[in-house]
Amino acid sequence: MAEKRRIKLTVNGVEMEGEAEPRTLLVHFIRDTLGLTGTHIGCDTGHCGCCTIIMNGVSVKSCMVLAYQAEGADILTIEGLAKDGKLHPIQEAFWENHGLQCGYCTPGQIMSAYFLLSRNPKPTEEEIRRGLEGNYCRCTGYVNIIKSVKAAAEKMSK
C-alpha cells in the first residue's frame, strides 16, 4: 500500500487538511476524513451525480477525482451554501417547491443548479434539464426539481 500523506485544501472557505493515500477519492476524503457527510455516494462510476461539488468554480463529481488532485483546491460543498443560518435561494426554492423527497440526491442536484445558475442566471427549461442531466433522481420525476431551479433563478435575479 502506498504511503499516506497530508493534503491541504480549502473547503467552504475554511482551510482544512487530512491524510490520504493516492487512491483515496475526493468524495471519501470529504466525507470520511473531513467529516462533511452532506456529499453522498450513489453509484461509483461517475453517473449519478450524488457526489457533485464545486471545485475551483466548476461542478465535478467528487467520486471521479482523486483527493490528491484536489490538493490546494477551493471547494464548495452543500454544507457551505447556507450563510449565517440563512438558506441559499436555491435551497429555499427546493424547500418551497417540494424539490426533493428522500433527499439523498439533493445535495448533488443543488450543487449542479448552483453551477448552472452561476453561469447562466436565466436558464430556459431546456437549459435547466441539460444542466441537471448528470444528477439522477429516483423520487421526483424531476418535475419539482426543474420547478425549484426555475424559482431559484427568479429569486436570485431579484
Partner: peptide, 9 residues
C-alpha cells in the same frame, strides 16, 4: 459527452 460535470473535468 456525458453530462455537465463530466464535461467540466
Amino acid at each position: 459527452i456525458g453530462d455537465q460535470q463530466i464535461r467540466n473535468r
